[in-house]
């Protein structure tokens, strides 16, 4: 079902639930993996994905349609992730690097990555980035999202996003190079 059909059906109370169910089915995987890349842990990603869609439900009637629906959902998901990570840091009074180390430990324990030394170092390098820079890196590197769309999701200018991604790539390359044996 196309986005405009979903939105049209959502306006009608009789078909609202059906439309929203379609919306969830259409975007759940993308939202889940966007969140999972940021929080690493499946259970956290599961909670946050559900929270994101509950918020989408609450605010979909106010969606102005001057942006793509998915960009809007991505923006909600991004804010949820950033709030989750910053509240986690506040709750346990952790500095930035400790949350990165915690996430890195989860990556290390993940059987999917076992044995792939370079991939593990790459992930550790990404997790050392500040949250917002990591978000920019994920959107550009993994999702290959155009900078213009990234600007809508993050509320940041295209120029700033390009600079942020450039610096992120440099940091990642330096970390992997430094920690790799000859």
């Amino acid at each position: 079902m196309e986005d405009h059909e979903i939105l049209l059906k959502f306006q009608d109370p009789a078909s609202r639930n059906l439309a929203f169910n379609q919306l969830v089915r259409k975007y759940q995987s993308k939202v889940y993996w966007h969140v999972r890349k940021m929080v690493v842990d499946h259970d956290d990603a599961d909670d946050l994905t559900q929270d994101v869609f509950v918020k989408v439900w609450k605010h979909l009637s106010t969606f102005r349609q001057d942006a793509q629906l998915f960009t809007w959902i991505y923006r909600i998901a991004t804010n949820e992730c950033l709030n989750f990570l910053s509240s986690k840091r506040r709750k346990f009074l952790l500095p930035l690097t400790d949350v990165g180390a915690e996430l890195a430990a989860k990556i290390e324990a993940d059987p999917a990555i076992a044995g792939d030394e370079i991939e593990l170092k790459l992930q550790k390098a990404i997790l050392r980035l500040p949250d917002k820079q990591r978000l920019v890196f994920n959107l550009r590197y993994y999702d290959e999202m155009p900078y213009e769309q990234m600007a809508e999701v993050t509320g940041t200018s295209v120029g700033a996003l390009k600079a942020s991604y450039h610096h992120a790539v440099k940091k990642v390359e330096e970390y992997v190079t430094r920690t790799t044996d000859d």
Binding site: S29, R36, H42, D46, T49, D110, Q123, Y142
Partner: peptide, 16 residues
Amino acid sequence: RPLLSEPPAGYFDKLP
């Protein structure tokens, strides 16, 4: 996407 373990089987069927 990064090499992370997949969510449990049937996860996306139950999530909606």
